[in-house]
Design a protein around this nucleic acid. Structure first.
Lengths: 146, 146
DNA sequence: GCTAATGTCTCTAGCAACTATAGCTTCAAG
DNA sequence: CTTGAAGCTATAGTTGCTAGAGACATTAGC
């Protein structure tokens, strides 16, 4: 049996985060020791590792909740899991495209900085005037984070 | 003179967001009409467009605050603005590298989905077992958002 | 056995950067 | 002159945690 600290260390998740996951129902309520401390077994470790890994891959907690409930019913067809993963992939691809465009624009900004006074600084100027962006790039509706 | 709605439409920023920017001091307090409605001029529009554009590029509001105070003092050297832009570029490059790795892993996950039952689904399996990731990729410490 | 250090407990509040709601007032068009 | 859209303030909610306070539990060293 693992205390919450050991569990966190093994799964690479901070202790308050584990308690938070329990609070929002991603992890079941843990059993307690005589002194009211949470105790975890192998199953909890696996579930937490699953969550951690999915978070690493950018899945939202809601998506993870769905994936967990799927994996709790292993006789169901896996179309739903596949759909979630595909949606996540599409989202990642969208973010990638966007970040690539941003990178190009930031690079132009930085390269053009004359090293002189603010008044002549392209960094500020480019930010102030959208029309100075590379001609074919209109910024998409702001939304680039998971 | 523009009302807050027109200003928002022209700058591509929602009305409550403008009020929020005023509240946190990114925009100066707007003048008011006889009926207590905010009125904006060209300068406010430019400043808001600047903010919008910088947000599009992924700058935090704190970074934008710094950039704005720089652009308010155009006689200063522009080293600081350049540094902020370079830091942002580095951050974008880090996120790009990470997202590229995630994309590869998600693609493998999706491709491997057998289309059968959850019990055999690689999507769930891969998420449950980090060791099934491509061999050379260790996930970085989770942190991929602006 | 005792003490000190660490670990854990609950609860509350805070972070970014907004978004949404409620209940009002003001404005512009017909 | 009335109606409906747009504006006002103030408060609370969102996501995914993180930090703090103050109390109890456990463990290591002596």
């Amino acid at each position: 049996m693992l205390t919450i600290g050991k569990l966190g260390a093994q799964a690479g998740v901070k202790v308050p985060t584990i308690r938070y996951y329990e609070q929002i129902g991603l992890l079941p309520e843990a059993g307690r020791s005589a002194g009211n401390q949470r105790l975890y077994g192998r199953k909890a470790l696996e579930r937490l590792a699953f969550i951690r890994h999915a978070r690493d891959l950018g899945f939202t907690l809601e998506a993870i909740r769905d994936l967990l409930s799927l994996s709790d019913n292993p006789e169901q067809p896996c179309v739903a899991a596949d759909a979630i993963a595909r949606a996540q992939l599409a989202e990642v691809e969208r973010r990638l495209a966007r970040l690539t465009a941003l990178k190009a624009e930031l690079e132009r900004m930085v390269v053009q900085c004359a090293g002189g006074k603010i008044a002549d600084c392209r960094v500020i100027e480019v930010l102030g005037d959208h029309s100075l962006c590379s001609t074919d790039h209109r910024h998409p509706e702001s939304e680039d984070s998971p």
